[in-house]
Computed example of a mutant assay.
Amino acid sequence: MIRAAAFVTLCALCTSPALAVEMVRLPDAAAAKYAPAPASLPKGTLLATIQGDPSKPGPFALRIKFPPHTVVAPHTHSADETLTIFSGVLRHEMGEKLDMAAGEKVGAGGFVYLPANMPHSVWTEDEPVELQVTGTGPFGLNYVNPADDPSKTH
């Protein structure tokens, strides 16, 4: 009897509107609706929210388009992050200092998983890059050096 009551309670919690996650279907890449990214990302960056809201609790998926020669200086995120590269070659470097000579290349189909609070930087070279970022909110970008935050110069 106690197990049955616990199961019913668990089912009620899982179907609660506050915890509900709706199905999302994106029929193809062209269906993603891009707009200028927040000021905390370099100028010219485009972003499409595919699922969820990264500023709120719960899962999210974003598509990002970086133009050529874009640098996102060393930063961290308060939650785990995954990157999946769709097109182009993204350079990725771990650490609190930007060393563009040391960054690893991650090409189309490549994947990067970053635990919360791990400092890293990304940049593009001569071609644009499109990638997907997934994680759980609330999620944000915290620059290691606050002077690197592009929103401070807009």
Rank of each mutant, 00 (worst) to 15 (best):
L10F: 08
E81C: 01
V24I: 14
P36D: 15
K56P: 00
R25Y: 14
E104I: 10
M94D: 13
L47M: 15
T45V: 13
A147Y: 01
G58M: 09
A48I: 07
G44P: 04
L90Q: 07
A116V: 05
A116D: 04
G137D: 08
A4T: 05
I85E: 04
T84Y: 12
T153Y: 09
A32V: 04
T15W: 11
F60M: 02
L13A: 11
S78A: 14
R3T: 10
S121D: 11
T134V: 15
F60T: 02
S78I: 08
F86C: 03
H154G: 14
V24G: 02
A116E: 08
K56L: 15
Y143C: 05
T70H: 01
A32M: 15
H120K: 06
I85G: 01
G44E: 10
M23W: 10
L46E: 13
A39S: 14
E96V: 11
L90C: 08
V112N: 04
E127Y: 04
T15I: 12
L46Y: 05
Q51M: 15
V72T: 13
I50M: 11
D99H: 13
P17Q: 09
M118C: 03
M1Q: 08
L141Q: 05
G135A: 01
R25T: 12
L98I: 04
R91S: 13
I2T: 13
T134A: 14
L90G: 06
T49M: 05
T82S: 14
V89H: 01
G140W: 09
D28E: 12
T49A: 07
A108R: 05
A39C: 05
G135T: 01
C14E: 12
G103H: 07
G135W: 04
Q51Y: 07
G88Y: 00
G109Y: 13
P150G: 04
D80V: 02
A73P: 00
Q51L: 15
T45L: 07
T76D: 03
V106D: 03
C14R: 10
P74T: 05
I85C: 07
L46G: 01
V106F: 00
G140V: 06
F86D: 11
A31V: 05
D99R: 12
H69N: 15
A61N: 03
P128S: 14
I50T: 02
E81R: 09
S121M: 11
R63S: 11
T124R: 06
P115A: 14
L47F: 01
T82D: 06
G95P: 02
